[in-house]
Structure formats: C-alpha cells, structure tokens
Write a protein that binds this DNA or RNA. Structure first.
Length: 553
RNA sequence: GCCCCCGUAGCUCAGGGGAUAGAGCACUGCCCUCCGGAGGCAGGGGCGCAGGUUCGAAUCCUGCCGGGGGCACCA
C-alpha cells in the first residue's frame, strides 16, 4: 500500500464515521500522510484527528480513537495506535508494505509520474541570456534548474513548453555588432563594447563567411556583423546548452515582435485599455495603478522602444498561444522586474497571481582560492558553461547546480570543483545505482531473475532496513509532485541522497545474493525486487535532474 | 531610504505548522573468510535577537541586527 492509497483509506474512514453520525465534520479533501522519523511511531502517521477535532467539537484523542477503530478493520493495516496529542500511527501488514517494490518495478519509468498538474498549460522561460556572449555560470544555474523544473512539471501532468527569449534587438546588440567590427578592424574595444576572446573568434567567422565585408561602407559592415554575429552567437549558445543536456521547444526572437508589428499592437492595446500616457516626450505605461513603484517608459523621447515594450508584446504573444500561465525564471539581479511585470499583466486585464509566475533565483558567487572572482561579461573575465562542464562533467555540473534551493546563493569554489573531490553528492547517488546494478548482474550470473510479479511474496520483506527502503520508495511520487508544485527541483536531489543512504544501510545488513553453495530462497527473490525497485527510482529521479544513472563507474 | 533573498552543527546546506530538528564534509573510535569499503555503525556539537498568531513555530506575522542582490527614457 502506497502513502497515496493509505491517504484514501483514511479519508474513507472519516467519511464512514461521518456517514454513521459518529463524527460531525466536513470530510477533508485529502488527508496528509507522514512518514514518522521515529520507527516506534509505525510505518505512517496522520494528524487528521488533530485537524478535525476543532470542527467536531471533540477532543483530538477521542476523534483519533474513533478513526483508529475504523482503520483497524481495513485490509492491509496491521495496527493503529493513538499517540501524543492525537496522532494516528499506522503500521501496515508486511505484504502491504512489500507490495510497494512490486508496484515500482511494474510501473518502471512511469513510477513517479502523477496528474497533480494535469490540465495546466505552462510556458516555462529560462536562461534567456542576451546573445551578446556565451552562457556564463549564472545562466548555467538556470539552465540546470529550469530544465529539471520542466521535466518535473511534465512528470506531474502539466503541458509544458520550454522557451528561450532571445533579446536580439536593441542597444546591447548594436554594441555587440560594433565590438565585432572593431575586432575585425583591429581597433580598440568601443566605449561600452564587449571584450573577450569570443568577440575576436566570432568576428573572424563572420569575415570567413563574408570575405569582402571590410571593403564595404562602415554602416553596412555593422549591419552584417549584427546579423551574422547574432546568428553565430545564438548557435553557440544553443550548442552549449545542448551539451549540458538542456532542451528547448522554442527559441523566441525579440526582433520578430518588431517585424510582425506585435510591439506596436501591444502598446496600442494598452493605450486602448487606458493605461498609457505621454510625458516629457516619452510614452509611459501607468504601472503604478497596479502596485509598481513607478511608471515605466514604453517609447523613449528619442522614439526608441524600450525592452519593457517588447516584454509587453512577448507576454501577450505567449497568452495568445494559449498558455494559462507564464512562468519566468530570473536571476536576483532582475528582482526589480517582478513589480513591473505583475503590473503589466494586470494592465492587460489578466490576473498577475494566476497568469504569471516569476521565479527569482539567487546568484552564483565564484570563489578562487577563497577569494571572490569578479565577473564582467564585457571585460571577458567570466566562467562559462563550457568551463564548468569541462572541469566537472555534465552530471556533476547539473547535479550541483540543481541540488541547492534557488533561494540560496551558491558559493562555488573553482578549485574545489576542478579538483573533482568526493564531496560531490552526485557520486554518492550514482554509486548506489552502480552498486545495485552490480548485484543484479551477479544475480544474472547465478541464473536468478525477478520472474513475474506473482513469483514474489512481498511479505518476506520484513527486516527493519527493508521496511525503511520500502517506505522511502513509496515517497517518490509525492516528492516529484511536491517538488513540481513548489518549483523546487532540489528536493528531488535531496530525496535521492536520502534514498541512496537508505539503500546502503539495507545493503549492509541484508544479504541479497546467496553465498557459496547456498540455494536462493523467497527472501532472495524479494530482495532482488527491492533492489530493482530502488534502481528504478534512482534512475527516474536522476532523469528528472538530467543526470545519468551509470551501471558501472 | 524603499523592495527581494538569506541567517539552522566547525564548514556547505536540507527541513512547504506537528512528536526527540537532519545529511554530507571535517574530527574521534569501530565494522569485510561474504553481493562494489566510492559503503556502514557509534560519538560530540545548532534554529541571529525580541515580540505575536496557534493546542503546537526552524516553518506563518511584526520589528531589530547581520550578509547578498535590486531600485534608468540600461539591457
């Protein structure tokens, strides 16, 4: 019996008590089932009696006793105790707990998938670094976390489109183009321009494609450097993201919003809705109406539109494509955007609390020899996605970036990472998988196999460490679901570390394979199923994080 | 000045109102005639401060103190 099933069982018990008139309460939507830390508190516990007591007008323990009687009659429930202020501690029958292993193996890759977010159409935008340079370490964090979040949301039944917004218009792109031109002409880096090795490399590539370029008038040169340069830069960004295993459904061009007239239409629409005014020669959106600190400029006095104007058009485009909710991941250096973006959504007539979700993640600090490394894209002193991957590999890079809460700043000591030490928990988790694979290989060598689901007796899994492992495996779907709902991929990583530890403890005290000339027993078969189930969950969990589950290391 | 994030073990961090607050690393002492010792067992030590809400607060609210980030007709 899984925790979800138990939750239904308890809920039914409440409903039955209400039906009989023993309890006068509204039956709760869902009942929280916890895994007690203390083994004396049974396999599972619920605080449902504590929650219902007030509404029922009766002491919690009395409600608990009532439900305990109800639950003891349920098939698969071995014991129910009322404890403390009114907790119900539930012990499952051995076979009901052991059945989890069979369930996991049978479900395979599907184990952990739920429909808790079914029916939601989400647009998930992440990274969206300007195509004026390679993806640096900060963007890499959002790549790892955003990709994992996308997988989590999909696994929970949401329909997700992963999107990268290319800011391929505007002043920064002009600076980028002029920087390329300067490099090609061997001139110094322009004021506010970009430096770094990649500028020279891209300039050279543009010249290879357009050998006669430098013979043309300077303004034409800039145009070509802009178009070709952005194209090359975008290709490089896409390829480094792909190298990290990060996939997108859509790369969306800001320029296309201008080409299609969407920006003008967006401004016109907001004007019709009465939120646009003119002052000091500029066109403003009255975002203060919707709680922003100050109003925002859409069109500058010089006639140029701002990024905010294209943001408006972009948001409307996403909504026009049918997404219920627009989810955007941004770094802490963009936290000031939240207010204006919420206001913009409200101005279009949408509800900023349901149609928009901005996830702010804290920045990655780089340390070298304990000293902070100052990063500047323009000066070219950055650590890139490729650098990180080269230093630690894709698995460790993704895992390390995704295992921390996005609310937490990460201090990344480069020396530590390049040294590739054992304190990276990804090895701990992967090792557990490799160890299980080795056991299963050994079983094959002995001519043993899992057989069919009917060949295993779940009741033989009665060792305390087996129970620990079964309960841990039973948690997985809830871990995935809550991580998706909380937008917290790191919870999956933490869970996997806990699961790996639980497996190692099981392995240490429960011999799986027969030794010497011993015969295989029903316990052997049961434990093989338990091993296979653990491997399945480790694989499924690592897959969510985009990390491989090696069979040998 | 205003807004956002953080403050939990020596260090790096988990803990979406529940029972005795956890893990890794570090330190100390143990455990393979046996499936991968990249493992396991045991030990010491912690919720920044002050109020509030609650039967119950690391968790929610307020204030303060520290650390980081943001407050452009920049992107």
């Amino acid at each position: 019996m899984t925790p979800e099933q138990l939750s239904d069982v308890v809920r039914s018990a409440v409903a039955a008590a209400v039906e009989r008139g023993d309890l006068a309460v509204a039956v709760p939507e869902d009942v929280v089932i916890e895994r007690p830390k203390n083994p004396e508190h049974g396999d599972y516990a619920t605080n449902v009696a504590l929650r219902l007591a007030k509404g029922a007008g009766r002491p919690p323990r009395e409600v608990a006793e009532l439900l305990a009687t109800e639950l003891r009659a349920v098939d698969g429930v071995a014991a129910v105790d009322v404890a403390g202020p009114g907790f119900l501690n539930i012990t499952l029958a051995k076979d009901a707990l052991g059945q989890i292993a069979v369930r996991v193996v049978t479900a395979g890759e599907a184990y952990g998938r739920t429909d808790v977010l079914a029916g939601q159409r989400l647009n998930l935008e992440f990274v969206s670094a300007n195509p004026t340079g390679p993806v640096h370490i900060g963007g890499t964090r959002w790549a790892a976390v955003g990709d994992a979040l996308g997988r989590l949301l999909s696994a929970s039944g949401a329909e997700v489109t992963r999107e990268y917004y290319l800011n391929d218009a505007g002043a920064q792109i002009d600076r980028f183009a002029r920087s390329l031109q300067a490099a090609a002409l061997d001139r110094p880096v322009p004021e506010d321009g970009y430096a770094g090795q990649y500028i020279g490399e891209i300039a050279a590539q543009v010249l290879t494609a357009e050998p006669e370029l430098l013979a043309r008038p300077e303004e034409e040169q800039v145009t070509v450097f802009r178009e070709r340069g952005v194209e090359l830069m975008v290709a490089e960004i896409r390829s480094s993201l792909a190298a990290l295993g990060v996939e997108y459904d859509v790369f969306f061009s800001e320029l296309s919003l201008y080409a299609s007239g969407a920006v003008e239409k967006a401004v016109a629409r907001l004007r019709e809705q009465g939120h646009v005014y003119e002052a000091d020669g500029a066109v403003w959106l009255r975002t203060t109406t919707f709680g922003d600190d100050k109003d925002r400029v859409l069109v500058k006095a010089d006639g140029e539109t701002t990024y905010f104007a294209s943001d408006c058009a972009y948001y409307l485009d996403k909504r026009g494509r049918g997404f219920d909710k627009v989810v955007i991941m941004l770094g802490a250096d963009h936290s000031g955007y939240v207010g204006r973006y919420k206001a913009l959504v409200a101005a279009t007539g949408d509800d900023p609390d349901t149609n928009l979700e901005i996830l702010i993640g804290q920045l990655v600090n780089l340390l070298r020899d304990g000293e902070p490394v100052r990063m500047s894209k323009r000066a070219g002193t950055v650590v890139l996605l490729e650098d990180l991957v080269e230093a630690v590999g894709v698995d460790a890079a993704r895992y390390a970036l995704a295992r921390a809460s996005v609310d937490q700043q990460i201090d990344l000591d480069i020396e530590l990472w390049t040294r590739r030490t054992n304190d990276n928990p990804v090895f701990y988790v992967q090792y557990a998988h490799a160890r299980i694979s080795s056991v299963l290989r050994g079983a094959g060598d002995l001519g043993l196999s899992l057989g069919e689901a009917g060949d295993v007796d779940p009741a033989v899994l009665e060792h305390p460490r087996e129970g620990d492992l079964l309960r841990a495996l039973g948690e997985f779907p809830r871990v995935i679901a809550s991580a998706a709902e909380l937008r917290a991929p790191h919870r999956v990583a933490r869970y996997l570390e806990e699961l790996a530890g639980t497996y190692h403890r099981f392995y240490d005290s429960c011999r799986v394979l027969p030794r010497g000339d011993e015969e295989a027993t029903p316990v052997t078969t049961g434990r093989l199923w338990l091993c296979a189930a653990t491997a399945t969950v480790l694989r499924n969990g690592l897959a969510v994080l985009g990390v491989s589950a090696p069979e040998r290391m």
